[in-house]
Write a protein that binds this DNA or RNA. Structure first.
Length: 698
DNA sequence: GTAGGGTTAG
């Protein structure tokens, strides 16, 4: 709080009113003793205050009046300042009121407490309660709800729960629907949805009826945790059993939940349903659709949504444009991204750090490093403060093109200024960047330095290093790191095991890989699809064919799919007759979705460099479904980098084209690969044959 | 006459 007050320690020199008309309007009630004209006034003249300077000057006038204006006038002024979100000013005014013994009551203190809470200083809010006590102000359910909300905003859920229980136990106030809803929000914030629902039941039992906000809070939380079906169940209960009408927020949460679960049809049904109920989607609803479509690589569809919203009179805002720009950047379509960028400026929106970070990401992704660096400097020139995401994006871009020295300098700049401290992602990007550029030793020494600085040494960083060391031919480092996990109190996760199994297989120590494979299950870490694929490739590579059949059967039982490179290896071994071709039956070609996830794995090198970049930052995996333009660009990019496509690369293209019904194009690719001296293999022909036979039947 | 809770972006 000292910090807050310090910024105000100078004397108050009220600036001239920006709006003289407003000045007289506000002062009018104080000049006349008669209130006869009061019913012609709007509800409160304080509503008319639109800027802080006017409010501060008015406050100054009020404090000089004799006698002082009523507590209500002061409270209204304080509320006006608070509504403008000038929380620190509100607190300052409240303190001035206290200093001059201006009247305060339970309403005034509630506003001041809210301001403290909004500034993440809930403890100051409690101090105000104590101050109020001294002046005979008894906190009520609103005061406590505000404090409860403050603790939740600060992520102090346990303390919030403690306060909530104390209030009930000591009968300090009777919780009402707002207080219950606030506590429910806190529980939802840490994803304890079951407890939140239990509290919903409890309040009902205690005779406090939940309302649409209470339900919406839980529905939203379930949606965020991708438990949309549970959310829909609760939605039905609310509407059908409790007769509570959903509103735009309820629908918006559900639509978002359906979108993130990829349930586009259901999302559009829900949109129709809400419109049938005559609830208009608002800007947020539309923005969610725009954003979800962009994240799925459907920026063009998102643009259609944007135009629909304009048609319906809902003006897109900064968030809308930022999502769309990001969407086109993700697609690598910088021309469209720039087009939207220009459009938003024409329509009067000022691009912010998010806008610029997206564009930066787009340039980095396309290896347009000069453009990226130019933009990076332009951001500061425009007076926009780059944030940690901006820096992370730039760092990622520099590593991606192998400019390790520049990346290192930028990283040092971040650390030196301490204005923008690196976060967990920064360290991931830097360590991974160094490893990808064969600088494992640098990565390792940086990592050790971080340990001294007591940075979060999480399992993800270990995974990056273990993998990096192994891939750079330093398996001994991988082993050391893996073995020290337990001394750091860290538990290997499925990634760690996958990386280590891959490491042992690479080194030809299949026995050790197998030991880990068995160990992970014992330790409660279930092998995933990647584990099986990695291990299977290890077995194939090292000629250990005896357990392969069993592995394939296990994968089948768990519905894990074989990825492209495993499949290719397997077929290669079968065709070279060292493996029983009855195994072919175990490879389900129809289930072999080579287009999307497999493509990522097989084109690993390229994808790592480019497509994964933005998704990596958001923690989601890329989807390349139907992104032909991108695929072809990627092919060009890899050729530009001197990486020749191999049989697998071509086969993926052939298969993807076949699955899209473009068998003729696939045949062209087949001819190209032959021309370039890459011989089509069994999978290549199978893809083509499968398509032709389907065509003939239908 | 004056106070509290739920939905969107990198």
């Amino acid at each position: 709080m000292k910090m807050l007050t310090n910024s105000f320690k100078g004397t108050f020199i009220p600036p001239p009113f920006k709006n003289p008309f407003l000045f007289s309007a506000i002062l009018a009630p104080f000049h006349s003793d008669s209130d006869s004209a009061s019913h012609h006034r709007p509800q409160s003249v304080f509503d008319k205050i639109t800027n802080l300077d006017d409010a501060l000057q008015l406050f100054d006038q009020m404090t000089q009046r004799q006698p002082l204006p009523s507590v209500v006038k002061f409270t209204q002024l304080l509320q006006a300042v608070t509504k403008m979100q000038h929380y620190s000013s509100s607190i300052h005014l409240f303190k001035q009121m206290a200093a001059i013994r201006a009247p305060v009551d339970v309403y005034t203190t509630a506003i001041a407490i809210k301001c403290c809470c909004q500034m993440s200083c809930t403890s100051e809010g409690f101090a105000i309660v104590a101050y109020g006590f001294k002046r005979g102000i008894v906190p009520n359910v609103i005061t406590f709800s505000t404090l409860l909300n403050g603790l939740i905003l600060e992520d102090k859920i346990l303390e919030a729960e403690g306060l909530f229980k104390k209030l009930i136990k000591e009968k300090l106030c009777e919780p009402n629907v707002v207080m219950y809803s606030t506590m429910i929000k806190g529980l939802c914030k840490v994803s304890i949805n079951e407890t939140a629902i239990a509290l919903l039941r409890l309040m009902d039992e205690r005779g406090c009826k939940p309302n649409v906000m209470t339900y919406s809070t839980i529905i939203d939380s379930l949606c965020k945790d991708e438990m949309v079906d549970d959310a829909l169940k609760l939605f039905n209960e609310m509407v059908l059993h409790k007769g509570i009408l959903p509103n735009v927020v309820t629908y918006t949460s559900l639509i978002r939940g359906l979108c993130i679960s990829g349930r586009w049809d259901d999302a559009s049904k829900m949109l129709r349903e809400m419109e049938d109920e005559r609830i208009s989607p608002n800007v947020i609803t539309y923005n969610i659709l725009v954003d979800a479509l962009c994240k799925e690589g459907m920026a063009e569809d998102a643009e259609v949504v944007l135009n629909i919203m304009v048609d319906r009179g809902k003006l897109p805002n900064l968030v809308t444009y930022n999502s769309l720009i990001d969407g086109f950047c993700l697609l690598g379509d910088m021309r469209k991204a720039k087009e939207v960028f220009d459009l938003m400026k024409i329509r009067g929106h000022v691009p912010d750090v998010v806008t610029y970070s997206s564009l930066l990401n787009g340039y980095c992704k396309k290896s347009m490093i000069d453009e990226a660096l130019h933009l990076f400097h332009e951001i500061t020139d425009k007076g926009i403060k780059p944030n940690v995401v901006t820096y992370n994006t730039m760092l990622h871009g520099l590593f991606h093109v192998g400019w390790c020295k520049d990346a290192h300098e930028l990283f040092n700049e971040m650390r030196a200024h301490n204005q923008i401290p690196p976060n967990a992602y920064t360290y991931r990007i830097v360590l991974e960047g160094l490893c990808n550029n064969h600088q494992v030793d640098e990565a390792l020494s940086l990592f050790r330095l971080m340990g001294e600085n007591k940075h979060d040494l999480d399992i993800v960083l270990y995974n990056i290093l273990i993998d990096g060391a192994s891939k750079c031919g330093k398996p001994d480092i991988s082993m050391v790191l893996f073995n020290e996990l337990s001394t750091k109190g860290l538990h290997p996760d499925v990634w760690t095991y996958n990386v280590m199994i891959g490491c042992f297989c690479r080194e030809g120590v299949v026995r050790e890989a197998k030991r880990l494979f068995l160990q992970m299950e014992e330790k409660g870490c279930q092998p995933d699809c990647v584990t099986y694929n990695v291990f299977l490739r290890g077995l194939l590579k090292n000629g250990q064919h005896d357990t392969i059949k069993m592995m394939l059967e296990e994968m089948d039982a768990k519905s894990f799919k074989i990825d492209a490179s495993t499949c290719s290896m397997l077929l290669d071994r079968i065709s070279s007759t060292s493996l029983d071709d009855s195994l072919l039956k175990l490879i389900d070609y129809h289930a072999f979705d080579i287009r999307a996830s497999t493509m990522e794995v097989s084109l690993g090198v390229c994808i790592k460099i480019s497509t994964e970049t933005p998704r990596y930052l958001t923690g989601k995996s890329p989807t390349l479904n139907g992104r032909w333009a991108d695929a072809s660009k990627m092919l060009k990019e890899m050729e530009d980098k001197g990486i020749s496509p191999n049989v697998l690369t071509y086969t993926i293209l052939v298969d993807a084209l076949c699955k899209e019904g473009k068998a003729e194009d696939a045949e062209v690719v087949l001819n190209i690969m032959v021309d370039r001296g890459k011989l089509p293999n069994l999978v290549t022909y199978n893809s083509l044959i499968l398509t032709s036979s389907v065509c003939e039947v239908t």
